Amino acid sequence: MQKVAMAGVLALSASVLAACGEAPEKDGESKASDFKPCMVSDEGGFDDKSFNEISHEGLLNAAKAIGAKETSVESNSSNDYAPNLASLAAKGCDVVAAVGFDLAAATTEAAAANPDIHYILIDEAIEGENTKSLRYDTAQAAFLAGYAAADYSKTGKVGTYGGANYPSVSVFMDGFAQGVEHYNKVKNKDVKVIGWDRKKQDGLFTGSFSPDEKATNTARQVFEQGADVVLPVGGPIYRGAVTVLSEGQYKGGTIIGVDSDLFKKDSEAAPYVLTSILKSLDLSTEQAIVAASKGEFDNTPYIGTLENEGVGLAEFHDFASKVSDTLTGELDEIKAQIIDGSLKVTSYLADSK
């Protein structure tokens, strides 16, 4: 009788152990996955407070959602792009996200050499059955920022400078200038834009995407010409403007962040941030990686707009009480007009949607 009872206990114990072999999933957690998502940065690195960092957040969010272990590598220069992509292929990555238009050539070559790996290129077009491009019509959101900058300016001059005259950089600058032009038309004003010429489609550039002395000197040049709201476009080059403003010479000077909400990303910059032009790199990157993990990879290009919330304008934060009482309402109206097509914003992506 004892043997029978003991056998029952052992059987029950075995069934309990078997049931406990896998801990129940908690809300928000996923089962471990063999799928391997990977990412390579451009030379700005994953701590640039801008598009590399936001894209990396998308990778981390995707990995968590599918219960996978991500792998990421940083590039110190353009010479690292091809070797870094090759190293990720060798590590057995199932999907590789490359951050930045500067990786277009290297990613195209890597995708052709590794047809079994899915490649996602962020901020530039790429073609291939195993590739997907994520791009953002930031001219739409920059239009709103330009209008806001013109309305806030006390000097009647606003400015911008970029890292290099690439389409994904100049699209911010040109959209910004269009917003200023619209403000002048609506308000019968004459706010000037320093650093960008719409007719020539050229402007002021530092020549790199590093927060170096050239970035600081370029920012100083724009402020010296009288601009009191400045839009730096190119990852960490905004730090040049922060350096200049922290010296205290240009009191009342402000900046506009790009890609992420700079007010939240950088406490040193926060006191000077009027607003930021947003790109949902994190969400679109996460969605593309998760889709790949489900066998639903789609090589149809993604273009972020105001309508699909792929781009947008951040809050005014500490400047909310300093902007005009009517500005927020005016921006909401302009946004609606851009979405319904009654107000046209031109860009190299406008005809791609």
Rank of each mutant, 00 (worst) to 15 (best):
A112N: 14
D47W: 08
F172I: 08
E330R: 11
I117Q: 02
E224L: 07
F176Y: 11
L17H: 08
K26W: 03
V96R: 00
S133C: 00
A139W: 14
R220L: 06
T107Q: 00
M39L: 12
S293A: 12
S293K: 04
S13K: 04
K49C: 04
D42G: 04
A112R: 07
G58R: 13
A320L: 03
L10F: 07
V169F: 07
D137K: 15
T243S: 05
V230R: 04
A142Q: 14
D212F: 11
V169W: 10
G195H: 09
L274T: 11
L204S: 09
Y152H: 13
L10C: 04
Q178C: 01
L262Q: 13
V290D: 10
G159N: 10
D202T: 03
A320Q: 13
L103F: 02
P167Q: 04
V73R: 12
A97D: 02
F263E: 05
K353E: 08
S87L: 13
A110W: 01
E53N: 10
G175T: 10
A270F: 08
F46K: 13
D261F: 13
I122W: 11
G156D: 14
F35L: 00
A145V: 10
L204W: 02
A7W: 14
F46E: 15
E43R: 09
E333Q: 13
K192M: 01
S280V: 10
S15D: 01
A105K: 05
S72W: 12
Q2A: 09
V95I: 13
R239F: 07
Y119S: 00
E22Q: 15
M6H: 06
E333R: 10
E247L: 01
A11H: 02
D298Q: 03
G175S: 12
D123G: 06
A82L: 09
K265Y: 13
G128N: 00
A14N: 02
N188M: 14
L274H: 09
I334M: 10
L283M: 12
T138N: 11
D137M: 13
I256R: 08
V169T: 12
T218Y: 05
C20S: 13
T305L: 08
G312W: 11
F51Y: 15
V258D: 14
T107I: 00
K335W: 08
T243H: 02
A150N: 10
D261G: 04
L59W: 01
I54G: 06
D340N: 15
L349N: 08
